[in-house]
Design a protein around this nucleic acid. Structure first.
Lengths: 138, 138
DNA sequence: ATTTTAACTTGCATTTCGCAAGCGATATTT
DNA sequence: AAATATCGCTTGCGAAATGCAAGTTAAAAT
């Protein structure tokens, strides 16, 4: 457990992973403007660390040489269950803007949700899994 | 998710929660000497924060007025699934000192393991759930 | 009554973070 | 072709969080 936390146990890493997994973000710029307000130097450093840890990869976009597409590795997509449990806990115990019905469904259909997350990853389907809440979640 | 991380998304909080949940630790001193090397001021601050977040409670030991027993609340014990997924991921993807068979069993008997964790919590059974690894895990 | 123990504080040096600005390499516009 | 814009980062610097050692207070043990 402490080993896991060393790889991504800080305030930002898991949010980046979440954005990759369920919000369909891929580029530096998209993370930067995703609404959580991460500083660019920290973002750069976290992307490096996650890459070094083998959780994400960086590949240049062929159509645009400036752009770098970040993507979860298999090791990264395996964090799906962790994120799902975090989401379920947060929804159950804290005030979130998410529809409760949606979460109840997720909790009772764990395996299906995770299979869908994996499917999207495999097929590089970048449509967001969750509807974007109206309110920016803090 | 970001809301969850605000409550315990730092380097130490989840380790404290883990020590409460699966290692049977209860007191300031036990956390301090649990081998991860947390500074006492940080430990004190984290215990306060977790208490303020409603994840743990502090109650004085009746038999010894100096001692404070920390304990997970229901909200805290509900983090069981999160910890279990972290443990499974870490074991699958990083070098840990844990016997693989044990983890395979945990992954395939998720619900039983979580039920056992809850049972121990309810009955205040403080025997560690996991065998203490010989090597101090870093 | 003195010493020990448990649970914290406090002070201070070091590290990390957050913000704004800048930079180099593509790509786009004129 | 030249000027401008965009993207993915660095850099510099003040502020906040962290780590370490020492001290404090109250309760137990001797």
């Amino acid at each position: 457990m402490s080993i896991s936390l060393e790889a991504f146990g800080d305030r930002w890493s898991l949010l980046i992973i979440r954005d990759l997994m369920v919000r369909g973000l891929r580029t530096f710029r998209e993370f930067q403007h995703s609404g959580e307000g991460i500083a660019t130097n920290i973002l750069a450093e976290r992307l490096q660390r996650l890459q070094a840890a083998g959780i994400i990869t960086a590949e240049a976009e062929p159509a645009d040489g400036r752009r770098v597409n970040y993507r979860l590795t298999e090791k990264g997509i395996d964090l799906g269950p962790v994120l799902l449990e975090l989401l379920i806990w947060g929804t159950r115990h804290e005030e979130t803007g998410l529809p409760c019905a949606l979460i109840a469904k997720m909790a009772s259909h764990r395996e299906e949700v995770l299979a869908e997350v994996r499917r999207r990853w495999r097929e590089r389907d970048h449509t967001p899994l969750l509807p974007n809440p109206k309110e920016k979640r803090k």
